[in-house]
């Protein structure tokens, strides 16, 4: 009989994979991330320059928002989905839709739900594909970004 996705895993669809987490976006953290990319964009580091821009404050490098809660998500993908004795896991990619930039001083609450789980025979054996959706809301309750991530366990 061919392998199937455990019912306990399928039951997680629609549920939180990680409890909501809140992060304060500090100016110093934006600066460090910009330095790590080696991106000298003054909007990230120069307070006066950013104040005169349309943003009115320092903004963060585009994908910084997706780093918020990412370690917790990756740990949960490996430990919280009951997939049986499958040791390996990989994030295959993600799509992220933005509605406004992440700014210094924002307080971001991240929620993470399991959107889909399915199984497929692959070269490396029976693979369980997991889709998660994360929403990033600012202190005003506005969704500033929405990420759909594709991961696999085998």
């Amino acid at each position: 009989m061919s392998e199937t996705v455990p019912q306990e895993a399928l039951d997680m669809v629609g549920k939180d994979l990680v409890p909501p987490l809140t992060f304060e976006v500090e100016k110093g953290a934006i600066k460090k991330l910009g330095e790590a990319i080696d991106d000298p964009n003054p909007l990230y580091v120069d307070a006066e320059y950013a104040k005169k821009s349309k943003h009115g404050a320092n903004i963060a490098p585009l994908l910084m928002v997706t780093t918020l809660g990412a370690p917790e998500l990756q740990a949960a993908l490996m430990t919280k989905i009951p997939v049986g004795p499958k040791k390996n896991g990989i994030v295959k990619g993600f799509d992220v839709e933005f509605s406004q930039p992440l700014k210094a001083g924002d307080e971001i609450t991240v929620t993470c739900k399991v959107a889909d789980i399915s199984g497929k025979e692959a070269k490396m054996g029976f693979m369980i594909n997991i889709t998660t959706v994360r929403e990033f809301k600012n202190q005003k309750g506005e969704v500033i970004a929405r990420e759909t991530m594709a991961a696999a366990r085998w």
Binding site: K32, T67, P71, Q74
Partner: peptide, 14 residues
């Protein structure tokens, strides 16, 4: 060195 800087800045300590 850049990878370590990113790890610290993003808190991804894999």
């Amino acid at each position: 060195r850049q990878l370590v800087k990113w790890a610290g800045a993003s808190q991804d300590w894999n």
